[in-house]
Design a protein around this nucleic acid. Structure first.
Length: 501
DNA sequence: GGACGGTGAAACTTCAGGTTGCCTC
DNA sequence: GAAGTTTCACCGTCC
């Protein structure tokens, strides 16, 4: 085995490795364990570099403009990109992530400092994979990452079409640690894979799904089906397995998602729909209970908190220590809005409840048209996470809509649809009618509204020059006029247009 | 004496991630 | 566990 010599110009060995990689005109991925570390690491490397280019300047400014109002995260990224260095983690806007990935493939970006996002799935090979951290925070303090994950990361080294080999570098801080890391990761065996079927949310979801699709109907069929799974193979204790399944079946029955008649389990109408929606039956049950409770007294925040308090929305935004008192006060203030039961302050679930409140507040600010910069400053949440939460929330709202429809809760349906639209576009209710137009999002709609163009009929009467001035683009203005013009002529979708306003 | 500002050490706080899932209302 | 952030004690300066 040959020894790699790297010039120790700086105290930071990652910086040295990065510079060495650049010197040999290669690319590297640096894996670290927090988002903050990824950003810091990229900055440290970028600081040591002088050269930049026209392409990089353009890249830097494109990344900065990925969202309407750049966040501090966007600015940091932009500075790094000027030197051909990037960081990559889940908080980045998907546009920025794609930009980084494609420019790394093209060779414009030389080094990416990243969290494990880039380790799995995405095919983004580099000559070097530098693994700085092998420990990560997991609820119970710092723990070693699994060997499997180390293999994922080191597997990024070596580009099939460019290099005949690659280098995976595991960084240690002492000789003692070096030996321990070598033994555990380099020479160690990956962990066994465990079935996830035993996890209750997964089990109850599949159980309901199998019954709903009539794959299994009798108790015997159900047991024999699960006996053939990997879970049973691993778990071995069939008696206990049976107990768990029976308990789940009782639960699904008590929630009225399945019925037991003529020795057969059958899904109810509601149960079948829930299986199709693919949400956790527990979440569905929470929704059913909430709908029973509310009547028609709901607002956007009520619904947002209801869906935020589900397993599907996790991981939730975390209430930080210094925010603790604030959020407790907020709960008291908005108490009437919240449909879900507040756990006791001594209940371990209480923190989760507070987190659900924070998450729903963030989403509520989004539909009050707060921008990414504001959300970053006030909720410490990046554009990428915001979009992810919105998408999940949208899916859950659709599920809630379907459950409300089946349960004949007509009065709430309109509220849910309205909220879905507001969430998707991030707007107040007053903009909804303008959003029916293509090429009009939250920003342009707000511009139009401010210019007193509040309805489609206002747009029809507007002068093209004025519209151009308001929107700042002649092309968009013409396009909008065309859209309202066409709608005017066909004259058959007035009902649809007014549906949500 | 007291307000103010700078400094560094101690104390405190925080920490990864789309498994995919729905449909266009 | 380690990096980043806040708090706090201490000191010197100025009014």
């Amino acid at each position: 085995m040959s020894v790699l010599k790297v010039e120790k110009k700086y105290a930071d060995s990652i910086v040295n490795l990065a510079l060495d990689t650049l010197k040999s005109n290669k690319q590297a991925l640096v894996f670290v364990n927090t988002k903050k570390s990824a950003e810091k690491c990229a900055e440290e490397i970028a600081k040591k570099l002088k050269q930049t280019s026209k392409e990089l300047n353009e890249l830097s400014s494109t990344a900065l403009k990925a969202v309407q109002k750049p966040t501090k995260q966007c600015r940091r990224l932009s500075v790094c990109l000027e030197k051909g260095i990037a960081f990559h983690h889940a908080s980045l806007h998907s546009k920025q992530k794609e930009l980084i990935e494609s420019n790394f493939r093209q060779g414009n970006i030389k080094i990416i400092c990243c969290t494990p996002t880039l380790a799995a799935g995405l095919d983004l090979p580099a000559f070097r994979a530098i693994i700085r951290d092998t420990k990560r925070y997991t609820g119970r303090g710092m723990t070693d990452i699994p060997v499997l994950e180390y293999l994922q990361m080191s597997g990024r080294a070596g580009r099939p079409n460019y290099d005949t080999f690659g280098e995976a570098i595991l960084v240690s801080s002492s000789d003692g640690q070096k030996d321990a890391l070598t033994e555990k990761y380099v020479q160690g065996e990956p962990e066994d894979i465990y079935s996830k079927l035993a996890v209750e949310p997964v089990l109850r979801t599949y159980l309901l799904s199998l019954i709903a699709t009539k794959v299994i109907q009798t108790k015997e069929q159900i047991l024999s089906f699960f006996e053939k799974t990997f879970w049973a193979f691993q778990f071995k204790d069939l008696k206990k397995l049976e107990q768990t399944i029976v308990r789940m079946l009782k639960l699904l029955e008590s929630w009225e998602f399945i019925q037991y008649t003529d020795s057969k389990f059958r899904a109810t109408v509601l149960g079948r729909r829930i299986a199709e929606l693919y949400i956790d039956p527990f979440t569905a049950h929470e929704f059913v209970v909430a709908l029973e409770k509310t009547g028609s007294k709901v607002n956007a925040l009520s619904l947002l908190q209801l869906i935020s308090n589900t397993l599907e929305m996790r991981p939730l935004l975390r209430v930080k220590l210094r925010e603790y008192d604030d959020f407790q006060e907020e709960i008291a203030k908005y108490d009437e809005s919240f449909i879900t039961n507040e756990p006791s302050m001594f209940d371990p679930e209480y923190d989760v409840y507070l987190n659900s409140i924070k998450t729903s507040f963030m989403l509520n600010e989004w539909i009050e048209e707060k921008d990414d910069d504001y959300l970053m400053e006030n909720y410490d949440v990046g554009p990428g996470i915001v979009r992810m939460k919105i998408e999940t929330a949208n899916w859950l709202l659709y599920a809630l809509y379907e459950i409300a429809r089946i349960q004949q809760k007509q009065e709430i349906l309109k509220d849910i649809i309205k909220l879905k639209f507001r969430l998707r576009y991030g707007v107040k209710e007053e903009l909804l009618s303008l959003l029916k137009l293509k090429n009009i999002g939250r920003v342009r709609a707000r511009k139009l509204f401010k210019a007193n163009l509040k309805k489609l009929s206002d747009l029809r009467k507007a002068k093209p020059e004025f519209l151009t001035q308001v929107l700042g683009s002649k092309k968009v203005a013409e396009n909008i006029l065309e859209q309202v013009g066409i709608k005017n002529e066909t004259n058959n979708n007035k009902g649809q247009l007014n549906n949500f306003s």
